[in-house]
């Protein structure tokens, strides 16, 4: 399909450990269309950041992709050499991380960093590159961009820095931006602004976004589709409205119910008993089965694949017969 930008199929990531192999990502499959914003949500340890890291080839050793394929524009990128991957990073895939301070080099001005990145990927003269850099800063909403461009990162506030990081990610005119918890370190009022920038600027620049976050609110505000991860596996994926309003997987249902509501008063929050299993102790069958309130025999022995339920895909046996299986 022409409008599929990124296609991840049966991705497996493993960490060799002293006590054996740790399977951190287990057969993850999803697509991102051109210009689409896909949210990846899950609790800590669910593997959402790892998914992003394996796509851009920044897995921390000893972690490695040990199965499946990742295709960008129909070209496999999971088996590229470090040098080839470096060319793709920045040019085809941009990155925004949680802490803007670590993404910016404190000893160079914003101009130097932006222009360098632009010229690495695009053939532009110094003057053109500077013009382009100012335009980018303008796009991400930095006031008086032409003056502030010569400032150092520490002269910007947290929110402004994250805007600069987004500009930096867009500098190579990538087709995909992977944003890992881009608003987690920020205050709510700043978060709201960054969400807007991320959403609108990426749309204008025609970049698709994979937004990794633990915050359902951010997902709801930003994404077209959302993937819910649990214990290194995909639990559910679908259009954001459908997943939020009509979740199909019991884990997603529990997750949605456990967020305190602003719209109405609830006496008691829905709570999912227990906690996510450790990666070395994932139960047989469905990984969620010991905590699930609708568990039955099949869940304990057989691992469910993603099953189409209405507009969503859910990895849950409850929906097996509905799908005609």
């Amino acid at each position: 399909m022409a409008d599929t930008l990124l296609s991840v199929k049966d991705l497996v990531v493993e960490f060799p450990q002293r006590r054996g192999l740790l399977r951190a990502l287990d057969q993850i499959s999803f697509d991102i269309k051109r210009g689409e914003i896909l949210g990846v949500v899950g609790e800590s340890g669910a593997g959402k950041s790892l998914t992003g890291a394996s796509i851009i080839g920044l897995l921390e050793p000893p972690g490695r992709v040990s199965g499946g394929t990742i295709e960008l524009d129909g070209q496999r990128i999971d088996n590229l050499s470090t040098a080839e991957m470096r060319k793709i990073r920045g040019r085809k895939i941009g990155m925004v991380f949680q802490d803007p301070l670590t993404s910016l080099n404190p000893i160079f001005t914003i101009a130097e960093q932006l222009i360098e990145t632009i010229q690495t990927h695009l053939k532009l003269s110094d003057k053109e590159a500077r013009k382009q850099a100012i335009k980018l800063l303008d796009d991400v909403g930095i006031p008086a961009a032409s003056q502030r461009i010569d400032d150092y990162p520490h002269q910007f506030s947290g929110g402004m820095r994250q805007r600069v990081v987004i500009a930096l990610a867009l500098a190579g005119e990538p087709e995909l931006i992977i944003a890992d918890e881009p608003t987690t370190a920020l205050d709510v009022s700043v978060q709201a602004q960054i969400i807007d920038v991320l959403k609108n600027t990426c749309k204008e620049h025609g970049a698709a976004v994979m937004l990794v976050t633990h915050d359902m609110g951010v997902i709801a505000e930003t994404c077209d589709r959302v993937a819910v991860m649990y214990a290194g596996r995909l639990a559910e994926i679908g259009p954001v409205r459908e997943v939020i309003k009509h979740p199909k997987h019991p884990y997603t249902i529990g997750l949605m119910g456990s967020i305190p509501s602003l719209a109405h008063q609830v006496e008691r929050l829905v709570q999912i008993p227990g906690s996510m299993p450790r990666l070395d102790a994932i139960p047989e069958g469905c990984a969620f089965n010991p905590r699930c309130n609708r568990v039955f025999d099949r869940c304990r022995t057989e691992r469910p694949d993603l099953i189409a339920v209405e507009e969503n895909l859910a990895a849950c046996w409850l929906h097996a017969k509905e799908a005609g299986a």
Binding site: V188, S189, V190, Q191, A192, Q193, I195, D196, D215, M216, G217, V218, I219, A220, E221, V240, R241, I244, K245, I259, S261, L262, A263
Partner: peptide, 16 residues
């Protein structure tokens, strides 16, 4: 107004 609308109620908000 800054709180993300995770329930997608579509309430009206002024940008922050």
């Amino acid at each position: 107004d800054a709180i993300p609308d995770h329930e997608m109620t579509g309430r009206r908000r002024t940008p922050v």
